[in-house]
Design a binder for these strands. Structure first.
Length: 688
DNA sequence: AAAAAAG
């Protein structure tokens, strides 16, 4: 297996130069007969023998440098790194025709990468100044095989009527009416309806309108009386809540279900369809118990019921006093209740479930089986599932020290890495497993991971974990955990998408969110730049050229890769992270951003959720996301823990409408600006 | 249609 089937074509073919004809290239462009065949890029494809492309003899015959590793290492590196791509002597990938770079320095000018693929630190002096003054005398750059274009021979922009996107009044005048879409009723019934449940059709629901005004007001403001489910429960206070629990009328998810004033959550979901409108209505029941920031003033973690060891570790982790979502959920988690928690991105959800989970495990083992607590080969008693490996790792970094402080052990179980180490840890025995659904389910099915003693299960990014590709493996895993075990579901965008899981696995869950934590109160400034599609890459370069850490989102792996090259080529050190990279590359890319060795990370949505990197001041969406939740999560990589942040979304004019709708659904007020490359406003954003 | 998650 010389080359990984999935990753290699893209990787191996990727000129590290963000080059022209690359724009449309992806693995699909490989002809079945010619692995790596590049009709549009290769100088003379016909002179290249299929299957011998990576053959050493041929390479030598073609006079290429011989740096490419052999054997297994070769195939691996071909997949792994853009720096491993074959280059001819001038540093240009061997398939790439010589191109005029308009006088810009080419690869020849860049220092060679060392053995590990790193280039020596770049000095900012040896590359062309990218100041705005210098920009004009640089010829326009073309990245996708278009003829070079100068801004001067385009139709003069100034002649066009001014666009009003940056005028608030303009936007205010536009009613949010664009999403009262009619098509719901003729869509097909949901495919994963279970037999046990009656088939649902949209007909038994009141017609849903997406018109904001027609919907029952959804507000998380403090000025609305706390929602109660038909009973006048006394206001919650942290001191007297526990004893009162028994007096409360039983509140169960299911018997609250047929509410008339809210749309039923069982709207059919559709694998195909013009747009996933269904996911847009936030589950209203989640507003059940709102905690305000003021409510938790003066409360410490120990007041919430956490032990001194844990409190000390939390302080070391930088959490001296609980955030609202933590204050809200910790007591109920400790009490053994199922909990649904919604807290804005960066609001401290990991500690909200991690700390009480450890404390509760400790409490549960304090009794009879104290002696067996560290028994060799013991089965884990808690499981935390996350949608990406990076997130699982990150959760472990928070939970592990907390667990360690009370003598409990965690281990990470996720894919993309060898089994041995994970199996070894499981054989020794662990208390808390943190992982991703694939490998966890794999090991569980193999009998290597015994979940039957798992009495606490956490779904982080729970709404995502309940979506199409995840729901099934997640449910299989949940089915293996201990009957009646405690379930904790957390997400910044927790919505009705979790209803199936909740109905099936949760009992009388406590539902929390933090009131006032909506987008309006966020510390994130949302900017939308309307531009010509063909200007996107240049504008991206200008945006990314400022100081500070930036996270760039692209919609596909190929485009993420391409943009990383583009930025690299433009003299901006950039890494990419996406699912086509092997785990060590992914980890390294993220680590490079965290450590500041690169300022720019170009990512697919693999990095959209949960990933915390300190001090990302700017999130750039080279592609707007498809879904409003993705927007919220992506933008939530900045503005964390109350810090300021800016999100810039690049929107081609033909996607304007769609983006407007998306932002409206996300309840985000963005500032729209029409730009062309070189605009001072871009520079201003880049400088933030 | 894409991305993620097992290999």
């Amino acid at each position: 297996m010389p080359i990984n089937k999935k990753g290699a074509p893209v990787r191996a073919s990727r000129p590290s130069t963000g080059s022209s004809a690359n724009a449309v290239r992806k693995s699909g462009s490989v002809s079945p007969k010619h692995r790596g065949y590049r009709p549009d890029a290769a100088p003379a494809p016909s002179d290249r023998e299929p299957k011998k492309r990576w053959n050493a003899d041929e390479r030598a015959a073609r006079g290429h440098s011989e740096q490419r590793p052999r054997g297994a290492a070769a195939s691996n590196s071909a997949r792994v790194g853009r720096e491993r791509v074959e280059r001819s002597a001038d540093g240009r990938p061997n398939w790439e025709p010589k191109r005029a770079y308009d006088g810009r320095p080419t690869h020849d000018a860049r220092p060679a990468r060392d053995e590990r693929g790193n280039r020596p630190a770049r000095s900012f002096d040896d590359r062309p100044s990218r100041g705005s003054d210098a920009r004009d005398d640089r010829p326009a750059r073309s990245y996708d095989a278009r003829p070079p274009r100068s801004y001067d021979n385009r139709p003069a922009r100034d002649d066009r009527p001014a666009r009003g996107y940056d005028r608030p009044a303009d936007r205010a005048a536009r009613p949010a009416k664009s999403w009262d879409r009619p098509q719901r009723d003729d869509r097909p019934a949901r495919s994963y309806d279970r037999d046990a449940r009656p088939a649902r059709t949209s007909d038994d629901r009141p017609a849903r309108s997406y018109d904001r005004d027609a919907r029952p007001a959804r507000s998380y403001d403090n000025d609305r009386p706390a929602r109660s489910y038909g009973n006048d429960r006394p206001a919650r206070s942290f001191d007297d809540r526990r004893p009162q629990r028994d007096d409360r009328p039983a509140r169960s998810w299911s018997d609250r279900a047929p509410r008339q004033d809210a749309p039923r959550h069982e709207a059919p979901r559709h694998e195909a369809g013009p747009r996933p409108m269904v996911e847009d209505v936030v589950l209203e029941r989640l507003t059940a118990q709102a905690v305000t920031a003021g409510e938790v003033d003066g409360i410490g973690f120990s007041d919430l019921g956490l032990g001194s060891n844990i409190v000390r570790v939390l302080a070391e982790l930088g959490a001296a006093t609980p955030f609202p979502i933590q204050a809200a959920t910790i007591p109920d988690v400790l009490a053994g209740r199922d909990v649904l928690g919604r807290g804005r991105t960066g609001s401290g959800k990991t500690i909200a479930f991690g700390a009480p989970l450890v404390e509760r495990l400790l409490a549960l083992s304090a009794g009879a089986d104290k002696g067996t607590r560290r028994e060799f080969g013991r089965a884990p008693r808690a499981l935390i599932l996350a949608p990406t490996r990076e997130l699982a790792l990150q959760i472990d970094r928070t939970v592990q020290p907390i667990a360690q402080s009370v003598g409990l052990f965690t281990t990470q179980i996720y894919g993309g890495v060898p089994y041995a180490r994970q199996l070894g840890a499981l054989q020794r025995g662990v208390d808390i497993v943190i992982g991703t659904p694939g490998r966890v389910g794999d090991l569980a099915a193999q009998g290597k991971l015994d979940l039957s003693k798992t009495i606490i299960t956490v779904l982080d990014e729970a709404d995502h974990m309940c979506e199409l590709g995840f729901a099934e493996p997640v449910q299989e895993i949940l089915d293996r955990t201990a009957q009646g075990g405690q379930k904790l579901l957390f997400s910044a965008t927790l919505d009705k998408g979790v209803a199936d899981i909740v109905e099936r696995y949760l009992v009388d869950p406590a539902v929390f969110e933090v009131s006032g934590e909506d987008q309006a109160s966020s510390t994130i400034d949302h900017q939308v730049l309307l531009l010509d599609q063909r200007d996107k890459q240049q504008v991206l370069i200008e945006l990314a050229s400022g100081p500070g850490k930036k996270l760039v989102f692209a919609r596909t792996r190929a485009f993420a890769e391409q943009l990383a090259d583009l930025l690299d080529e433009a003299g901006i050190r950039a890494e990419s992270i996406h699912g086509d990279l092997n785990q060590s590359r992914r980890t390294r890319a993220l680590e490079k951003l965290t450590s500041g060795r690169v300022d720019v990370l170009v990512a697919t949505d693999v990095a959209a959720r949960g990933i915390h990197v300190d001090d990302i001041a700017l999130v750039i969406q080279a592609d707007a996301p498809d879904e409003y939740k993705a927007y919220l999560h992506r933008s939530g990589r900045t503005g964390r823990a109350g810090k300021e942040g800016t999100v810039v979304t690049l929107v081609p004019r033909n996607r304007r409408r769609r983006t407007e709708e998306l932002l409206a659904r996300a309840e985000i007020e963005a500032n729209w600006t029409s730009v062309v490359p070189g605009d001072a406003f871009i520079e201003e954003l880049a400088a933030r």
